[in-house]
């Protein structure tokens, strides 16, 4: 990896993601194959370019970083082997750490609710996740018909499972918070 005049953002993202962002020659292969690029406000390759320009605020506030599903289509096809999903993860984590309120808040809230559930029980419980997400983001009655049908089919487990070593799990989360 050669860093030519790297700004702080470029250096940091290259280091954290392990990706050679400057190798991108803007062929657009990633954009064409990306399942969600048409919903993004900034195409994935432009994010790589903006990192090189140091445009941190715009990037962290973008919808793009949250819409990326980490499907790895781009990374599989990129002629320069750039794994953009890894770059997006670094950017999402940066946005959370710096408390940036960007676009696509519900996606961020969903991820947070998901991890909070694991911290509490060790396992994800779908009904609790849906409830927590709806309480945090509104839209309590959306999809209610679908929910009833799924309920009738016995799709949901009513009671959450909790692992025996849940204290250990809580400790892991606590430790991670303390080292970050």
């Amino acid at each position: 990896m050669i860093i030519i005049n790297g700004n702080n953002l470029l250096n940091l993202v290259q280091k954290e993601s392990g990706q050679d962002i400057q190798a991108c020659y803007y062929c657009h292969k990633c954009v064409v194959g990306c399942p969600v690029s048409k919903y993004m406000d900034i195409p994935p390759n432009a994010i790589l370019r903006m990192i090189q320009y140091g445009e941190k605020e715009k990037i962290l506030k973008s919808a793009t970083i949250w819409l990326c599903t980490a499907c790895e289509t781009c990374g599989t096809r990129c002629p320069n082997n750039i794994d953009i999903a890894k770059v997006m993860d670094v950017l999402k984590q940066m946005a959370v750490k710096e408390g940036v309120k960007g676009k696509e808040k519900t996606i961020q809230i969903m991820h947070k609710a998901f991890l909070a559930g694991i911290e509490k029980r060790g396992r994800m419980h779908e009904l609790s996740l849906i409830r927590d997400l709806k309480l945090r983001s509104g839209g309590l009655f959306k999809d209610i018909k679908l929910g009833i049908k799924m309920f009738q089919l016995g799709k949901f487990s009513i009671f959450p499972e909790k692992v025996r070593n849940v204290k250990e799990i809580k400790k892991i989360f606590k430790k991670i918070r303390s080292i970050e």
């Binding site: 980490a70 670094v90 999402k92 984590q93 969903m110 991820h111 947070k112 989360f173 991670i176």
Partner: peptide, 10 residues
């Protein structure tokens, strides 16, 4: 997907 999105240690 929430683990890798929000925290690289998790």
């Amino acid at each position: 997907s929430s683990g890798h999105s929000l925290n690289k240690i998790l």
